[in-house]
Simulated scan of single mutants.
Amino acid sequence: MDTCSFVKVLREEKRSLMEESRRIFSHFDFLPILVHLMDQDYSIIYANQFLCDNYGMDVIGKKCYEIFENNTKPCDVCYTYSVIKTKKTYRWEWDCVKTNKTYDLYAFPYSDYDGKTMVLEMGFDITERKQIEREMGRLDRLNLIGEMAAGLGHEIRNPMTTVRGLLQLLSEKEECNKYQEYYGIMIEELDRANTIISEFLSLAKNKPTPKNEVNLNKIITSLHPLLQAEAIEYDKTVKLELGELNSLYLNNNEIRQMILNLVKNGLEAMPVNGLLTIKTYETEDKIFLTVQDQGTGIDANIINNLGTPFITTKDNGTGLGLAICYSIAARHNATISVDSSSMGTTFYVEFNKK
């Protein structure tokens, strides 16, 4: 074969390989996952339609860390270089800063039609699964705390009641007058411990919660004078924005307790003259209660653990108030979610209509 014929054959083979490569990659456009091909300098050579829909149509030629992380240099923990170096597949969970989504990410070594080594990455969105896992973990912790509370709460409370009664008797004796200040402190601390135990016992409720058909707006309206009085004490305001709602099967006392806890947290989080808004609205199959404050927001490291006992943003808090809210929501087949920024925090309580 002469040189011209040989070159022609090579060109034909190269063209065939390119066409085959394009054909293979065209199938990725129909997949609901992230798929992209990267060069050794982190430049994106190919991106499937799903990736373009989520991160923009102009990703080709850009660096992956620019597109996904808004960085100007490669990420501190990046497996792209390791894939190229070891020729091995890597798998890890990736939290995308740009979209706040979590992906189960696979990175494969890939040889192009010209023999060049690149990295093919596929990302499966597991955000919802991770949220469910966190919620299940929270419920497991609540159940554990509840079991402990049920077993220990009453046993601890009884001797504390005895000690408190004896302290009151001693404080009334004339010879103990000089110790009045100390008796007051001890009784106050015992009362605080008793309050914490009462909250623990609220978590320990494992009996079926009696429910009646009631309109959520009716519960909120009946609470409004109490909420306003609480707000005035903090030099703040509570506003109601109640939409038309269907009735739900609820335990009136527990829902009142949940609303009071959420409102009190919101009031304490806001500066003077802040506005707290309570809203209700419904969709086709859900009813929503939202409590929105104008505070400074909740730290991202804390937000995923909200509802866990003793996780709190308050200096003297126990975290049990929110834990009780999550426990009440769970007993009503409802869920609580949080949206927080420097402009304030909104708690969403989502009830199923059926």
Rank of each mutant, 00 (worst) to 15 (best):
M1I: 13
V7K: 15
S16R: 12
L17W: 05
H27R: 14
F30Q: 15
V35H: 10
V35I: 03
Y42G: 00
I44G: 00
I45M: 10
C52G: 00
C52I: 00
D53G: 03
N54P: 00
G56M: 00
D58S: 00
D58A: 00
V59M: 01
V59K: 00
G61H: 00
K62W: 00
N70Q: 07
T72M: 05
T80F: 09
S82Y: 13
W94I: 05
N100C: 12
F108K: 04
K116Q: 09
T117Y: 09
L120H: 03
E121W: 02
Q131C: 09
I132N: 05
G146W: 06
E155F: 15
I156N: 08
I156R: 15
I156G: 05
P159E: 14
L170Y: 10
C176Y: 09
N177C: 14
N177F: 15
I187N: 13
R192V: 11
N194V: 07
F200P: 02
F200E: 06
N206G: 11
P208Q: 09
I219P: 02
S222G: 11
L223C: 12
L223G: 03
H224W: 06
E230G: 09
T237D: 04
V238Q: 01
V238A: 03
V238F: 08
L240P: 10
E241I: 08
E241W: 07
L242R: 10
E244S: 10
Y249P: 06
Y249N: 15
R256M: 13
V263F: 04
G266P: 01
L267A: 03
E268C: 04
A269P: 01
N273P: 11
G274C: 12
I278C: 02
T280L: 03
Y281D: 11
Y281G: 04
G295D: 01
D299I: 07
A300Y: 12
N304F: 13
F310N: 15
K314Y: 09
D315C: 15
T318S: 10
L320K: 01
I324M: 04
I328L: 06
H332F: 06
H332E: 08
N333I: 12
I336Q: 03
I336M: 03
V338Y: 05
V338R: 02
K353F: 14
